[in-house]
Amino acid sequence: MSSLSVSHTTLAMDLVPNPVLELKNISKIYQGRTVVDNLSLQIGAGEVFGLVGPNGAGKTTLMKIIAGLSQPCSGRLTIFNRDGLAERAQLKPLIGWVPQDNNLERELTVREALALYARLFAARPFQPRVQQIMTEFNLESIGERRIELLSGGMARRVLIARAILPEPKLLLLDEPTVGLDPDVRQDIWQLIRSLAAQGKTIFMTTHYMDEAEQLCDRLALLKAGSLLMTGTPAAMKSMAEGKPHSAVTLEAAFLRLIRRGAE
């Protein structure tokens, strides 16, 4: 078997010195189906890490396990050197969660929603922090608009702003640009880049290979709950083609690896 081949046995988890997030043999079985299968992964401080894979690969479930919204059936989760399951209460202020769907309270205005979350997440001092975030995220013009009236792009912007309010160190983004037009996607990418530049560790899922290539330092390829590979986008392309400098697009590499992983 070639060292570049993709298989469950050769596959390798990149080891990171002083990881801020470490998953060890995490499994989740939901309604009799294995959604995450014995998965191990390490993410370093300040990394932008992307989780890619086809629909139903277990990306969102894995994200929810890290966020604390889903309990794994087995395995160990370590976040900032703390037990991610037993010490969840201490970890909550350090993790920001941006879900795929808009889960903001629809009846509230943007300003009311952010003020409420600032209180819920004890982001002090409340009002100055809300004002700062609204300015930073360019939300002032829509401050009095009700959440239910926001466009998809604006709602996503507010969701990210909300997650940033308590100044988390680890930001979890589940499909941050799904369903958005190219212009708004660029806008969200810029936002993610600026958060990464502030030193935040970002763990995101995406279906878009251009997004993964543009934003992520490293990627993990997931299929049917199993990890197929981890590496930089360039490494993923090399692995797909079996040579060091590959000219294929990340999307083509993704498809090859997924199909090869199925063989």
């Binding site: 879900p99 889960n103 309270e105 819920l120």
Partner: peptide, 14 residues
């Protein structure tokens, strides 16, 4: 449906 409960679950409030 609206998944608004997620916010309360993830907040640091006991």
């Amino acid at each position: 449906y609206f998944k608004t409960l997620q916010t309360l679950i993830l907040s640091p409030i006991p």
